[in-house]
Write a protein that binds this DNA or RNA. Structure first.
Lengths: 139, 139
DNA sequence: AGAGATTTGTACGTATGTATG
DNA sequence: TCATACATACGTACAAATCTC
């Protein structure tokens, strides 16, 4: 396993660790809901410090791939049921990361952006992992 | 200034530092394009370690509020010109964080999500800080 | 153009706190 | 109760990019 990490590469070691885990998620080797090995285990496996593993996990959490909470293993984020939002003609849809207040109110996890739908008067914000916008058109 | 950080609060110190800077950005005290003080300066100002400042900056970078690069001060991200994307009726719009490959190809900064527009056949991905989607109106 | 100072990035070490199982 | 596991926070050191003179 140690061959997978090159300490002399231009790419940072913690990014290399993130790359390996990201690929394992993409390939299905780590399925949705699966727990990662403990940080300490990963650190030993790849021959790096705990901090490096922690930094790699932060990267993947901020990509929306992992759910991390204290006291339990990091888990591959499950795909959530998506609610389809109907938007009227002339509505505009944009995206950004939520503020901490929005994350609390909408119960949005780390690494999940929000969808913002603006019509003539109203502006509504949706959790990006549970919503998608359907553009209604026609007469 | 030290009164702003409570080392005995339930809220983590690095989150408190992030809160202070976030509020300075929101209030305009730190304008778009403005450089933050050096990490070392902030650490002294708030009576915390360098790592705490670094962690706070990572939080704000991942919220899309700061641009950070080696050798130069962190800067408040400037609002970018937005290109309006016309989408046909029945197109669906969703959002997520980009993969590293997408970040490279579309030149997307840290903390910036992508907009995904799917019509019957095509799926197109746009940088979330430079694009918004407009539904073309009816007849 | 070049040298040196500044600043952030990365990596490792250590310790303590707190939630989970 | 107890062990496990992650979060936080202090420290140190060096590398690499940028800026200043």
């Amino acid at each position: 396993m140690l061959e997978m990490i090159d300490h002399h590469s231009d790419r940072a070691v913690y990014q290399q660790v993130a790359d390996v885990v990201r690929e394992q998620i993409a390939s299905g080797e780590l399925a949705a809901g699966a727990a990662l090995p403990a940080f300490k285990t990963l650190a030993l496996r790849y021959g790096v410090g705990i901090d490096v593993v922690k930094d790699a996990v932060v990267v993947l959490r901020n990509e929306g791939l992992l759910e991390v909470s204290r006291g339990r293993r990091a888990r591959v984020r499950s795909v959530r049921a998506v609610e389809v939002i109907a938007a009227p003609p002339h509505a505009r849809v944009s995206v950004r990361m939520p503020t901490p207040a929005e994350r609390r109110e909408l119960k949005i996890g780390e690494g999940i952006p929000v969808l913002i739908v603006r019509s003539d008067r109203a502006e509504t914000i949706y959790a990006g992992d549970r919503s998608e916008v359907l553009l209604q058109g026609g007469p």
